[in-house]
Amino acid sequence: MKSIKEDILEDMKNTCLTVSFELKKHFRMKRMVISFALAIGLPLIFYIVPRIWASFPETAEEFANLNLSFVNLLIIISGSLFAGDAVVGEFEEKTGLLLFSTPQRHTTIFIGKYIGALLPTLTVVTIYYLTTSLEIIGIYGTEGISLEFFKSFFIALVYTSSAVSLIFFFSSILKRKITSTLLGFFSLMMILPIVSSVLQFLVEVEPWYILTYTEGLITGVFVGATPIGGGPGGQPGQFSPDFYQGITIMVVYTVVLFFLSVFISNRRRME
C-alpha cells in the first residue's frame, strides 16, 4: 500500500502529464500561435495607427487606458480557445474512453486540463501587457510605467482566471464543443455585459455580483484617464466597481466554478 506522500506525488506527476499533454495539444492545433499573434498584434495597432495618422495621448496613463480597454477581448477569445473544449471534447469525440481507462485519477485529469487552459491564457495576457509596456517605454520612457500599470496587470490575471473558470464550467456541463465555446464566449462578450447594463441603467442597481462588471477594474485603476469603454460592455456605466469587492468576486467565481467543474466532470459518464 502506498503512503499518502507517494500518493500525492503520483497525483502531481499525473497532473503535470495532463498539463503538458494539453499544452502540446494547443500548440499542435495552432491555438497558441493565433492567440500569441493576437496578443502582440492588437496592442501594436494602438502604436502604429497614431504614429502614422495621429498623435499619441498626452500621458502614459491615457495611452495604457486606451490600449488595455481591449485586453478583456483577448482574455475572452483566448479563454474560449483554450478552455472551451477542454472537458466536453473528451466526451464528444469519445477520446475519454482511452483517457479515463488509464490508472490516473479522473480528478487529476480535470485539474490538469484546467491548468492546461489557464496557463496559456495567462501567458497571452502577459504578452499583451509586455507589448504594451514596451510601447509605453518607447513613447513616454520608463517613468511611463506606473504602479497602476502593475495593478492593472495583476487584476487582468485574476480576471483571466475567473473567465477561464466560467468557460471551463460550461465545458464540463455541456454536450457539444461548439455550444460550450460559443456559450462561454458570448456570455462574457454579450450576455453578462447586457445584464449588467440593464441592471445599471434600467433597474439602477449596482451589478457588483456580475463577473464582467468587475472587469472594469482592469482600466478603472487608471484614475487619471478618461474612461474609454472599449471592448465588451461598451460605454462606461453609471456605477464603477469597488476595488476590493471586485477582486473578491473574481476569486469567488474562479474557485467556486473550478471546484464545481471538477466535481461535475468527475461524475460525468461516457454515453
Partner: peptide
C-alpha cells in the same frame, strides 16, 4: 484606487487552491 498587493494575494490564493 486600491493597492497592488491585493490582486497579487488574490492570484496567490487562486494558484494555491488550484
Amino acid at each position: 484606487i486600491g493597492d497592488v498587493y491585493s490582486p497579487i494575494l488574490a492570484l496567490a490564493i487562486i494558484f494555491l487552491v488550484v
